[in-house]
């Protein structure tokens, strides 16, 4: 029975490996439990819950009990994906990191329809998960859109005050050469100042509408179409009016009669104001 050293070394190695394989795992396993509820807070009974080890890909499944509770034991520590899949509703997934020896809790709230076994589900009606899946991001987009449009609405109403005031004092800005009784340099200053405030508020108002999140798949219908169409009139008008006003201001300050393109300042302002007023009226029936 003389064996060479190589054979003895291999046999010893195999023995070590065998013992190592037979030895119990030294890692302390973790436990995960929690409750699955529907949006109203009621327990989601008989709901399938699975845990997937993200490193090994190994998956385990269980079902919630009458209280909506689930539990997994003997899970190796690591990162896991936990999914609650109620019948006929949208699965809810969350990630959790399990620490060795720890008993961790993860509660899940599932949106969408909940059906007990045997009950009709949204799937039975032909709705796809894409149609029935709620999205927190989509809701956040809707919330942001509404918030920005509310500010747009309020600022738009506030802008009417300096806008009207600018129009009211316009007569006093026509200059010292008899174009309007009582017109003078201070009248022009006041008109220009109010016009600047109006333009500043207008741009701020417009930006809240322009940069409000767009909701995909929405067709514009109803009074908002007129509101948007009128923006193509008062928008350019609100840019052109101050430019023409600056030209007219300069000409008047030089003692000249307003001439050339600057003569359009008044008419452009009136058209802009009319379109702006109509735009407000067009949506005044909305909430």
């Amino acid at each position: 029975m003389n064996r060479n050293p190589t054979t003895r070394f291999c046999a010893l190695g195999a023995l070590v490996l065998l013992i190592a394989g037979l030895a119990p795992a030294q890692t302390a396993d973790a436990a995960l439990s929690g409750t699955v509820t529907n949006p109203s807070g009621a327990a989601a009974t008989n709901t399938r819950v699975s845990v997937k080890n993200l490193a090994s890909g190994q998956t385990m499944e269980t079902q919630t009990d009458a209280s909506g509770r689930y539990a997994f034991t003997n899970l190796p520590p690591g990162d896991y994906e936990v999914t609650a899949s109620p019948e006929g509703a949208v699965p809810k997934t969350a990630k959790v990191t399990l620490v060795a020896g720890a008993k961790q809790t993860l509660n899940l709230s599932v949106s969408g329809n909940f059906a007990n076994p045997g009950e009709l589900s949204l799937g039975d009606l032909g709705f796809t998960p894409q149609q029935t899946t709620g999205s927190a991001q989509e809701q956040a987009r809707l919330n942001k859109r509404s918030h920005m449009l509310k500010i747009h609405q309020r600022l738009g109403l506030i802008t009417t005050a300096p806008f009207i005031a600018t129009l009211v004092v316009a007569n006093g800005a026509k200059g010292p050469h008899g174009a309007a009784p009582g017109s003078n340099a201070s009248g022009r200053e006041l008109h220009a100042a109010l016009g600047s405030v109006t333009a500043g508020l207008y741009i701020t108002t417009a930006s809240f509408a322009i940069f409000a999140p767009k909701i995909a798949g929405t067709q514009t219908r109803g009074p908002i179409r007129l509101h948007k169409a009128l923006a193509w009139i008062h928008g350019p008008g609100m840019i052109l009016t101050p430019v023409l006003g600056a030209l007219a201001y300069q000409q008047r300050s030089n003692g000249e009669k307003v001439h050339g393109i600057a003569q359009a300042h008044g008419p452009v302002a009136i058209v802009t104001a009319a379109a702006y007023g109509l735009a407000i009226l067009s949506v005044s029936i909305k909430f």
Binding site: G112, F127, T132, G134, E138, Q139, L142, Q219, G222
Partner: peptide, 26 residues
């Protein structure tokens, strides 16, 4: 559809339709 897309989107928002897109009746 209420005839005004702006109002419908606002209703969708207040009714949390982004998060809960379906109405179900049993």
């Amino acid at each position: 559809n209420s005839g005004d897309s702006n109002r419908d989107l606002h209703m969708l928002q207040v009714a949390r339709g982004g998060e809960f897109p379906m109405v179900t009746v049993r």
